[in-house]
Design a binder for these strands. Structure first.
Lengths: 252, 252
DNA sequence: GTAATAGTTATCGTATACGATTTCGTACTC
DNA sequence: GAGTACGAAATCGTATACGATAACTATTAC
């Protein structure tokens, strides 16, 4: 059921046609197409998703498009308002906090569960990716860094034996997709630490550390990113993020 | 009326007013109706959900019913097969394992995050519920026990400041809803331990224990239920549950 | 008697159509 | 001139219709 399509985004092209015939279901195609456009940034947060317009663009009727939108809503990628329409979910700092916190938990668990199943070849691959990331730091290539970062973590949790947890991880990543490189861009120092933490994680896995230790390390790795974000965020935003009772900001 | 149906929203929105009756949306009504029938056991696992039939029963057309079914699919309550139809998700032991494992993680996190926000009144209420559960053990009232169990845990995580995590917890509970009392029924000894673990959890919260300790305790509480289930399960089923190798369905 | 195959039925997937609701622009009143 | 009421346009929500696909059944060949 669950899509394991981790949209890496860049190379997919997101051509205006969906005639690739991937699954044969137009609803599925519409889902993939709209999702890709959100993930790769074609549809930016706040973008108004008009069913009829999307349907025309994709060459299908509104029914499968509507279904696709509702699915994306369930995943948190779009916000749907009755009798009004759908918009791409925004980068509301509160939402960012929620997503990162949730991701730190499920990703930590996924990594811990995967660890015993990660072989030497996987570790070697991940390490190579991490070294590439280190190079990106010097050439300042945030786009490539972000993609490599996903590749790295994919190695860590792709062997997760529990597909439910894996699915939750993928959903979290997708939610962050539209603002993935923001951390690197706005908190430069964080990226350096991140690479080091990656290496430490690999060491833990190599040495067959306990699941608890690996989980804690993976969780802290993400928490640190969140903390860095919050530390480099204006006080007002920070307050909104830490005040969980705050209502939604009526953006736009 | 099913209180669980009203308590569980789909998205992060806290404005789910299904309890007030009609939301005006037939899709929403269909969703609530079918979900309620699954949760309360009217539709048992494996039950074939024919769109046209449900539509007729509810007095609406197939379109909103289809949408409702897809939403339920996203929550894991039904299984949808292309060009074949939908069935209520089964009690596949493997799925049970996945769900319980996931729930142990998100519920543990939710409880730990809630703990600092739980007041004395909450603890007192939870303790009263737990004592009622103890009585249920003597009178052997599994139905009431199960409902009280939900009440107890609701107290623990209802203050969770992260709605995403809370939503995941609700989804897990709903998935288990149709077979909730099975543990109590098939593993009687487990219920006794469960009540004791509840009390221990309350003590931890009362004494202001660290988040890590609370999380671990909450997680173990559920893991123990899973283990008890597996221990009292035929070897063949157990093997299926522990064999993580092939969750993929090579469709197409 | 069994297996393969063609025909039938049930059900899904999607297009189209239309009523319902919201939003926006314009005119009107105070 | 500002605020309100009314009307038009845009968009959504749902019903209906029909082609597409899979499941079922009966028939026939071996």
């Amino acid at each position: 059921m669950t899509e394991t399509a981790t949209a890496t985004g860049t190379s997919t092209g997101a051509a205006t046609r969906i005639g690739t015939g991937a699954t044969g279901s137009k609803s599925e195609q519409a889902y993939a197409a709209v999702k890709a456009r959100i993930v790769d940034g074609t549809y930016t947060p706040g973008y108004r998703l008009v069913l009829a317009k999307i349907a025309e663009d994709l060459g299908v009727s509104v029914v499968p498009v509507r279904e696709a939108i509702r699915r994306l809503e369930a995943e948190g990628l779009v916000k749907f308002e009755r009798n009004v329409g759908a918009t791409v979910s925004g980068i509301d700092p509160t939402e960012y906090l929620y997503t990162m916190q949730t991701l730190s938990i499920v990703e930590g668990a996924a990594t811990a569960l995967s660890a015993p199943l990660i072989g030497e070849a996987d570790v070697a691959r991940a390490r190579a990716v991490n070294e590439e990331m280190r190079e990106c730091l010097q050439h300042f290539d945030p786009v490539r860094f972000t993609r490599l970062n996903q590749d790295f973590h994919s190695v860590l949790f792709e062997h997760c034996p529990n597909p439910h947890i894996l699915d939750l991880v993928h959903r979290g990543w997708n939610r962050l997709a539209s603002l993935r490189s923001s951390t690197f861009r706005f908190v430069p120092g964080r990226a350096h630490d991140s690479v080091d933490e990656h290496e430490a994680l690999l060491r833990l896995i190599e040495t067959g550390a306990g699941a608890d230790d690996i989980e804690k390390a993976a969780r802290l790795h993400r928490s640190a990113t969140l903390d860095a974000y919050l530390a480099h965020t204006p006080a007002a935003v920070q307050a909104a993020a830490t005040d969980h009772t705050a209502p939604q900001t009526p953006q736009q």
